[in-house]
Design a binder for these strands. Structure first.
Lengths: 241, 241
DNA sequence: ACCTGAACACCGTTCAAGT
DNA sequence: ACCTGAACACCGTTCAAGT
């Protein structure tokens, strides 16, 4: 029952919890943008709509953000906040790696469109760095030498991002159900015999099985393809370059 | 010196070669679009600009094309026409594979933006199929069983596309020279010790070396990770699924 | 310093009207 | 059947003007 000065700054929070009305802030902008992205997709995450969600005009956002591209980068890093980099020290490195990468994939999958942003941004925000740090840690534990691990740090997320982007695009643009089906049916056996023969395998398979298989491929490949010449993936005090 | 009826349909070609003025046609539209895409990038390949290049209005294109998305798919397949699927039969399969994939990469690299389209399209045009056919052929020669080869057909181009998309995005959006540099310099050694230690390796390396290394990784991984249970990559008459 | 409305130069897509 | 201009409902970004 205390008195309230109605001219107090707006960052008052109500007794019922939650801010009554957020003042403009980078935090609020990125939050509203990620919200829009998650619910409506990349195209709907426009400066105008983000501004509208915050009860203001698009021009107001330019105080906090250079341009749309920068907002996208910020939103991307915010989305990576969901990546769980804590690993159970008792686990084998293989389990840690799978857990880490599955968490990364699911962060990219949660919001359709986040993966498209990922492909056009260098993930240099705090959450991106936190993820790289964890990934380098696991690779080190796996005995991958540093130069190889550094490149793997590029290759692995790139592949995961591509998977997520492909899925998101397929979902966003629902090819009329069975467009793929029709394609497969109209496939010319004479012109493309091998594609024809493999047509069922090409579209089959639980996405999760495919993902697991692909990780296995990357892992085996990385472990056996060190950048530094040598007999194998044994940890060695290789100097960089 | 023959007479010409000025009311003749427009698909007249001049003696000097080349059409004087192309009539509207799907062919002409896709050609003009790919041209714009190559010279100006994905964002500039708008229906309005394609139409302008053909001396007409955007509305006219809708006779030939469902919407922008469809035009993009068509442009993508047209770009894949540059992929060379002829392989020297005397070559070892490894060489054929490298050649094929390098040709694919360079088709995607030639036009900035084509890779972005690739990620949002199922490549079911004739040139896409031709490429898959060739890829399946080489994988078969390498002794990869069919179910594994089918998934590899997804994984390999996906990865190549992601590389190309990343490069294109970096070029299109020139982060002020040295944005990465500054990022690396301001990197907190305390918070991200492993990233800090690997910072030079993370950004170093000729793109071509990285690409070759990545292909090697994928290849070794695929050869040693058959979907069908078994001792190794030996070809086996596994029935699909 | 922060916010705003209006303006500018664009988009994709639709539609009635022309040939 | 093909093409067109005009209109509709959007964009990102800038800018002068307000507080």
């Amino acid at each position: 029952m205390a008195f309230r000065n109605p001219f107090e700054p707006r960052q008052v929070t109500s007794r019922r919890g939650g801010p009554v009305k957020q003042p403009l802030s980078l935090e609020a902008i990125v939050g509203a943008a990620l919200d829009l992205l998650t619910r409506e997709g990349l195209k709907e995450m426009s400066l105008r709509k983000v501004a509208a969600a915050l009860d203001t005009g698009a021009a107001s956002l330019y105080v906090y953000v250079e341009d749309l591209q920068e907002l996208r980068s910020l939103v991307f890093d915010r989305a990576l906040a969901a990546v769980d980099t804590k690993t159970d020290p008792k686990q084998h490195w293989r389990g840690k790696l799978r857990g880490l990468l599955e968490s990364y994939l699911s962060a990219l999958t949660r919001s359709p469109g986040i993966a498209q942003i990922a492909l056009s941004t260098i993930a240099a925000g705090p959450n991106g760095l936190r993820f790289f740090e964890a990934l380098l840690g696991v690779l080190e534990e796996a005995g991958v030498d540093q130069p190889t691990a550094a490149w793997a740090c590029d290759l692995i997320p790139l592949y995961i991002t591509a998977i997520a982007a492909e899925q998101a695009n397929r979902d966003a643009d629902p090819h009329p159900p069975g467009a793929l089906q029709r394609m497969v049916e109209s496939l010319s056996q004479a012109e493309y015999p091998r594609v024809y023969a493999a047509r069922n395998d090409l579209v089959s398979g639980d996405p999760e099985d495919r993902f697991k298989w692909a990780l296995e491929v990357l892992l085996k490949g990385i472990l056996e393809t060190p950048r530094t010449a040598g007999p194998g993936p044994r940890r060695s005090p290789s100097r960089s370059r």
